[in-house]
Design a binder for these strands. Sequence first.
DNA 1: TCAATATTGATAGTATTACTATTATATTTG
DNA 2: CAAATATAATAGTAATACTATCAATATTGA
Lengths: 223, 223
Amino acid sequence: MQNILSNIIISVNDKLYVKNPETSELGKKIIEQSILLIDEIGFENFTFKKLGEKINSNESSIYRYFESKHKLMLYLSSWYWGWIEYKLAFATTNVSNPMERLKKGITIVTEKVEDDSTTLHINEAILNKIIIQEFTKTLLTKEVDEENKIGFFLVYKRVINRIIEMINEVNPDYAFAKSLASSIVEGALHQHFLKDHLKTITNCNETVSPTDFYINLIENTLR
Amino acid sequence: MQNILSNIIISVNDKLYVKNPETSELGKKIIEQSILLIDEIGFENFTFKKLGEKINSNESSIYRYFESKHKLMLYLSSWYWGWIEYKLAFATTNVSNPMERLKKGITIVTEKVEDDSTTLHINEAILNKIIIQEFTKTLLTKEVDEENKIGFFLVYKRVINRIIEMINEVNPDYAFAKSLASSIVEGALHQHFLKDHLKTITNCNETVSPTDFYINLIENTLR
DNA sequence: TCAATATTGATAGTATTACTATTATATTTG
DNA sequence: CAAATATAATAGTAATACTATCAATATTGA
């Protein structure tokens, strides 16, 4: 996987940036270090000024890449789901048994990401951590309809649609494929969060993973 | 239900306020109108200054009740889950069949709230709307561990624990009662959100409710 | 009833945030 | 090497999230 993917570029909706950060060293540094800084201090406390200090650059230079920290977060999210989509396609092609294919798919969208070296400047494990902590907040805004219309959540919805298809292939009579798929993708982020912070209301821990929970769930649901 | 509940007072962790808003007219006005204003403009755009203008009072007066808008939101959340807890207890006592009891419980935590007149100054239907849009964000912060320790999420966890018990009573061998319960409670908020904003990734709409989805889910899961 | 006390309102002020604008300085490229 | 482009530095603005102070108004209880 590492080698095969090592040269892919995940393309992101170009309305999310002013200047494509993949086209310069500074741009890549912004992406790399923003992931680390958001993980460190949280999105609410994250500012372009602080990021500028961290990368020895200037606030105003960062604004030449991203209009706002919200757009930067949407960029990182879009990149993340694009990367998941890629892994999803890769892991499920040539798996002919529908249930097995779905299980592989569920695994991709629910497992904890251990850093792979797909890209030099993006630490996927930490990106996964900030997605767990911050992604749902990018949806829960007053601007969601507007932003959805522009297409900022397309990649995310595409990932969910792939899971929906896989569910339908296992059991075309199941009436709630869409809700089940969106529940799993968002719910897995939530279960990861609970296992780190509100341990009493989840079964997930070091030995039981969200993936175990969701695999069991689809086995029961789609029989 | 209306009459029986009409005099109840939902008690909220007293570390959430500086002065108990239930003890004065201004306090109740703050609660009443903050719910409406947060619904109208969203939590991010909500400020005590704007609320002050809305209620013809002063920013500084509101600060005498709540330290910050975040604490106010935690107060509203705590009130909401306390109210749900009450409804949950009420709807499930004297239901002897475990599956039937669980279904009633699931219904309470997943259904859309139509305004009842439990309290004069709180519009529960609109409170439900802002919980759907804002509650998860109150968890997803860097301060969650600290705030959890103080007990700000106790009522929420108590609601989930009641559902966990009900699940265990239906099927004590099911290995993921905690994750299932927390998935349902958080996931239902999410499904309500999707049905209003990202309709393509949910089956829920005017005729199919999140409650239908989750009742079907537990029927399949806990057999 | 009047004085003490508590509550609310008005005003001002601070540090930070989320930007925009301008100008200067590097760096790249043709 | 000149021109174009990217970056850095500085300054400035309106809004936010508060704190502090003091005056005005209600309330209450001796």
